[in-house]
């Protein structure tokens, strides 16, 4: 298990927005988290990425796991697109940073924008930049919060391809939130369904989508 969650809880005042009893993530698998707005997807990912703190409970990554996280709202630093990606490289990789950066820019169709200010990109461009920046370094597990939500269809397909290639190359684990059931179906081995901060149902992608058991998931899928 690359990640184990136990009694993880987050609340604001009296309002519980996340409450997971126990869950284990297996190394190398791809997990999609689905659920309505406000169901706690981002809350979980932020806690796992340690950009937010749980109110109670614990989680544990396997020893020496390098965690990469892409927040729901991608951010472009006000410097060139090229430098936006270069800044992700630790000092010891400085010599290969430029080549690797150009490579990833090319893959994500960002080469024509390489001199542009990262703060002046469109939503989908910023998302491609953020994904490229994360994928330019090695991580054992990726936490992606709606990584393609602002991308056009073609860009999203390209991004997915680049992502899958990365996961394969690095043997990395993926946990991502998405509102696209099609995307979950294309990518995920396991789907986790959230409602009101609770983990309602999970299982193999095809099973969950075709044979949902909980009334909440059945209703959710019907509306989709």
């Amino acid at each position: 298990m690359i990640l184990t969650i136990e009694n993880l809880k987050k609340q604001y005042g009296d309002k519980v927005v996340l409450d997971i009893e126990k869950f284990e993530f297996e190394k190398g698998l791809k997990y999609a988290i689905i659920g309505a707005n406000g169901s706690g997807k981002s809350t979980l990912l932020k806690i796992l990425a340690k950009t937010d703190k749980q109110s109670n409970g614990n989680f544990e990554f396997e020893k020496d796991t390098a965690v990469g996280f892409m927040p729901q709202h991608s951010f472009g630093f006000s410097m060139s697109v090229l430098n936006n990606i270069m800044l992700a490289f630790p000092l010891k990789y400085k010599n290969i940073a430029k080549v690797k950066t150009l490579e990833i820019l090319e893959k994500l169709m960002l080469l024509p924008l390489k001199k542009k200010n990262g703060a002046h990109l469109s939503g989908g461009e910023t998302e491609r930049l953020a994904l490229g920046r994360l994928l330019s370094n090695q991580h054992d597990i990726l936490l992606l919060d709606e990584p393609t939500a602002s991308m056009d269809v073609q860009s999203a397909i390209v991004a997915e391809k680049v992502l899958l290639e990365y996961l394969k190359q690095n043997g990395a684990t993926l946990i991502f939130a998405t509102h696209s059931l099609k995307q979950a179906e294309r990518i995920a081995d396991i789907i986790i369904f959230f409602a009101n901060g609770n983990l309602i149902e999970y299982g193999k992608t095809k099973t969950v989508l075709n044979f949902p058991t909980s009334s909440q998931l059945i209703e959710f899928l019907q509306k989709a």
Partner: peptide, 26 residues
């Protein structure tokens, strides 16, 4: 907050994060 979140997600250290913040505040 988006700067800290992004930097942390990339595994960037505190010192560099502060410089990135400074750059955004020029």
């Amino acid at each position: 907050s988006p700067i800290l979140e992004t930097a942390k997600g990339l595994g960037i250290g505190k010192l560099k994060t502060n410089f990135l913040t400074l750059n955004e505040s020029k």
